[in-house]
Write a protein that binds this DNA or RNA. Structure first.
Lengths: 378, 378
DNA sequence: GCACACGCAGTAAACGTTTACAGGGCTGAT
DNA sequence: ATCAGCCCTGTAAACGTTTACTGCGTGTGC
């Protein structure tokens, strides 16, 4: 691990000045003979450019940071998987920050932007506090926020729309003839919980169903909690014929309980999850789920950031990624082609609604493929 | 986004030299009055140290790279989740490289080590070629390889032992009284495929069962391929009473086919997967799976790298992480409370991995919270 | 034959730090 | 009063690049 060669080393060996070496290495016009000498010396010494020194001079690191609460979370992972290739294609490295759901860590990340070790940042904040906004407005590098940012903030912002997503699910269930549609939600003091509760109320109204408190059960966003909540709801309303669960884990818990209770899914009770994680496709019966477009949000965020890095200034943009209903066996049954088709039509309409310019079918197919991943390594 | 203040700006404003500013910022002994002036100026200007300039001088970037084939792969993700906190605690940032299973990209990553934008590298190569070894021996920064590296290579190496892992599964199935144990493997020209095939043969011999070619079916490491392979095997050997699948996805495919064929799991056919991904716990029936210790391999790799970064030279080390059988319903049945309890205990151990120093109950609760993900964000 | 232009390469400054070294002022001892 | 010694601060070099500027030598046009 001896000190590597620098342009000075090369210059000496080639008998030229460091300026010439630099010019050759950067392909600037140079006499053929000089090029030859420099290249030869560089090859012999196994020279590699020092990225740090380059960055210091050029004020560009070719690195971008992605900050979220936890790498293990499937929603963030879906984003990461879209962000990475977009950045890579543009020649940027990805620096990962896991803030462990600690707000102070998020502020830290924003602060460290000032250290200029990255050219830009994509962040998924847990919630946006005053401190966030302050740091954001003072940020010395472009930032894209995935989540809710107050109007008028001077940053690019990419959002999901879980309220509409809930609507898609309710519509779907209603079309299938379900009339006693229960909701298993997470805590109402969380952003997702509140949005979903509101969406549920409104969607019921939209399809002309009454809102019945007995059909709503609050738990938390985990499988065990989901089991518990569904058990309670089932005791209260034995003839519930559909369950909308605030995420896929809750829905898995619901499947557990329904199975134990001897209810058939979807014949007796249809079940819908949210987030459309890998688990939804893996479960049995496979789970109909509302995709909130984590993957697409990641992709859009990366593209917005690149625009700013390459283009320069423009007005901050707000992109809302539309939700999409992914119908699987837990509502349609594998043998219900009619429902499936209706659903497909809807999903398509839905996708067209906000017509994001980015969603190619090829990219989407690829994503699905990768998701399955060659598992193990030896 | 005006140019940020530098120590020069501060020096001017405080009326001192840049050396004094630097000393104050680094806490070197300085007159109280000077400290005050410098701090005041720094605060007013909102100064933040430039990490690039620092790195140039100190020859330390406080960044470490992690390179693997695909972020979306659960096995790599499990590693990442352990690596990240270890590095973060030591003050290192994590740079992520996804090589998309392209060998040239891996070589690229090794090459780019010379650019000195990171202090070290953890890599999970697909396979180790001559080119890899060459680059490794010339590497100008410490590298830890997760996977198989030839004897005598001068790098730290962390391995799984899938051969023994297969043995665990066969033992388990044999103990449960299964005698016609099929194997659904991936391609034999992959490192995992070959190791598992060998393990299967030997494990059968160890428990005194004959090797029967009809019981072996080669497919690929995906769910659909798994379905196909299991269908073939089932046609050939209708009375097979157990299936060992080379990864969890294949096992999920097996569950699909067995269900469709009217076979009960585990009563008629017991199923075992490998890798113990999230999917194993989520499926129904939940899947007994051989954990190859991805999480632990990640943790060990990170620790080895840190040792080298902080400590300095020592002999390269080889650590083999033992496999572990995680028993769930697909072999034990839900009605086997003993097995279930064993499983819970095991899951906890797994979370603790090698007893991370941070494992307070609160931290654990928080981690758990995140892991499940308040999946979606609004 | 001279001026001018042009192609090429070298010198030096700059990016923002850290740090070795030197020097200035003060204290205290002689 | 002088000087050693100490504390503090400033000067300058260094990390490895890129690049503006300068200058040299050659060839061309008059």
């Amino acid at each position: 691990m001896a000190d590597g060669p620098t342009i000075t080393t090369i210059a000496e060996r080639a008998g030229v000045s460091i300026a010439s070496v630099s010019r050759v290495l950067n392909g600037l016009p140079t006499r053929q003979e000089t090029v030859r000498k420099v290249m030869a010396a560089a090859d012999e010494l196994g020279y590699v450019r020092n990225a740090v020194a380059r960055s210091l001079k050029s004020r560009r690191t070719h690195q971008v940071a992605f900050a979220m609460a936890d790498v293990g979370n499937p929603a963030y992972l879906a984003m990461l998987r879209q962000i990475q290739p977009v950045l890579k294609a543009a020649g940027y490295r990805l620096v990962l920050h896991s803030t462990d759901a600690v707000v102070a860590d998020e502020i830290d990340v924003l602060h460290s932007l000032g250290e200029r070790y990255v050219d830009g940042l994509i962040m998924v904040p847990l919630r946006v506090t005053e401190a966030h906004l302050e740091m954001l407005s003072a940020a010395r590098a472009p930032v894209v926020i995935i989540g809710q940012v107050p109007e008028g903030s001077r940053v690019d912002n990419v959002r999901a729309d879980s309220r509409t997503g809930v609507g898609l699910a309710i519509d779907h269930l209603h079309l299938l003839g379900r009339r006693r549609i229960g909701m298993i939600n997470g805590p109402l003091d969380t952003v997702p919980g509140a949005a979903r509760a509101a969406g549920y109320r409104q969607a019921l109204a939209d399809v002309g169903l009454p809102y019945d408190e007995d059909l709503v059960q609050i738990g938390d966003f985990y499988r065990a909690e989901g089991r518990h909540a569904v058990t309670e709801l089932l005791a209260r309303v034995p003839d519930v014929d559909a369950l909308l669960c605030a995420n896929d884990l809750i829905a898995l818990g619901a499947l557990d309980v329904l199975r134990a209770a001897g209810k058939r899914v979807p014949q007796d009770v249809a079940v819908v999850g949210m987030d459309d994680t890998d688990l939804a496709a893996a479960s049995w019966p496979s789970l109909t789920s509302v995709s909130l477009g984590s993957a697409e949000r990641g992709k859009v965020a990366a593209e917005l950031l690149l625009e700013r890095l390459q283009g320069g200034d423009r007005e901050p943009r707000l992109v809302t990624v539309p939700p999409r209903l992914v119908v699987r066996a837990s509502t349609a049954g594998e043998s219900a082609p009619a429902a499936r088709t209706a659903e497909d039509r809807k999903a398509k309409e839905n996708r067209d609604v906000a017509g994001s310019a980015t969603g190619s079918d090829v990219a989407e197919a690829l994503t699905e493929l990768d998701a399955q991943g060659k598992g193990s390594l030896e």
